[in-house]
Design a protein around this nucleic acid. Structure first.
Lengths: 215, 215
DNA sequence: AAATGTGAAGTTGTTCACAGCT
DNA sequence: AGCTGTGAACAACTTCACATTT
């Protein structure tokens, strides 16, 4: 969904799609582990992940050799390797900017915490109106972003502001040290090349479905 | 983010990425129109959309010839052509299944309506507990899905149920005529090849960012 | 003069097929 | 015997360069 921003990264060869698949493999491995399975072949895992087995092996090959020929992969070991590669071994702080409909929902969404992310701060131009709904964390004013981000060393942000405000807010975030933005605003953000943007646009996903189901 | 499901489509040559970009072009055109601009060059539009100009021209070329050499494209005309290609000229009915945190948020999200989709029904195993929040449409029980979808001829569904339930619910939806699923559950859905699935996984997007901002 | 439309070249990502371990 | 790791073949997508049209 997003323009690849592979330049500059310390491992510039690895495709973004591979990284997406890593996350999928991780989910499969977690389910295997939960079922008490300790070893898995690329064939079986690829099936569960919805890819072909050479794809999976190629993806892992970007990082080294982890399997045992004739046997397969160790579920727990591979699991923790992937977590390490993704950089989610330790809990990552994230801020959320724009606490409207979607922002509010994301604040109460459990999915992030489960995968190693913690929304440590939320910001809005009119924080008081939102605060009513017992939200955690407390919603702060936009003016507090700079201090908060610098103090806590936050590097990731979820952007849920209206499209007109998105670019300006993104500029402020980048200026203060944010290097990864998950952008829910239906706007193309222009950022320095060391900053990574992942666009999530729900209307576009529906439009895409609409095209492919036609007739 | 998703496996391409290009087989079977009536226009099998057009890449999924092109369709995503069509949506982006459409947003740009709408903004241009709002600013009273009637003609645009591929160069200018590509800049706004964050792509290179030959890319844009190639994308449009899949559908025919729409520009005037030496001039550019007619904003309004191209806008309505794209809407037509995407199949969103008329309001599309969508159902939402699973009214938890995320599902509730999506129900109150204005973004869909604005782009030609209407959430005409919502379903949950425990509809009463959700109904409290004055939601529109009213949340129905899972048992009512079949009748509702058949009666209204709904073809698109937004799936926000827990991962354990996702596959089973998807099967029911497919059985009753749903051919496009926007899947928020962190599970790989297995569906017949005539059904299109778009996975939206917020945790995976964050993990992806996490990888690229490392160090 | 300006900007589209497109064949051809280039790049990136996927799949195959099999050599090489265990 | 089974399954990984990988060079080589393949397919898909992107970019270029320019002929063509207004």
């Amino acid at each position: 969904m997003n323009p690849p921003k592979n330049h500059r990264t310390q491992r510039p060869e690895i495709p973004r799609k591979t990284i997406y698949r890593l996350s999928i493999y991780l989910r499969c491995l977690q389910r295997l582990a939960a079922n008490g399975i300790h070893t898995v072949s690329s064939e079986a895992m690829a099936l569960a992940a919805g890819v072909k087995s050479p794809q999976l092996r190629k993806d892992l090959a970007y990082f080294g050799q982890f399997g045992t020929r004739g046997l397969g992969y160790d579920v727990d070991q591979l699991s923790s390797m992937i977590t390490q590669w993704l950089g989610t071994s330790s809990l990552q702080p994230v801020i959320l900017v724009g606490v409207g409909n979607l922002g509010t929902a994301l604040l109460s969404y459990r999915g992030f915490q489960k995968e190693g992310f913690s929304v440590v701060g939320a910001f809005d131009i009119r924080p008081v109106s939102r605060q009513a709904r017992q939200s955690e964390p407390v919603v702060m004013t936009m003016g507090q972003i700079e201090g908060f981000v610098r103090e806590r060393g936050v590097r990731l942000a979820i952007l849920c502001v209206p499209p007109e405000a998105a670019q300006e807010v993104a500029n402020r975030l980048v200026a203060v040290g944010i290097v990864g933005i998950m952008n829910f605003a239906p706007t193309v953000l222009h950022v320095p090349e060391e900053v990574v943007v992942n666009n999530v646009n729900l209307a576009i996903e529906l439009e895409n479905l609409s095209f492919f189901i036609q007739q």
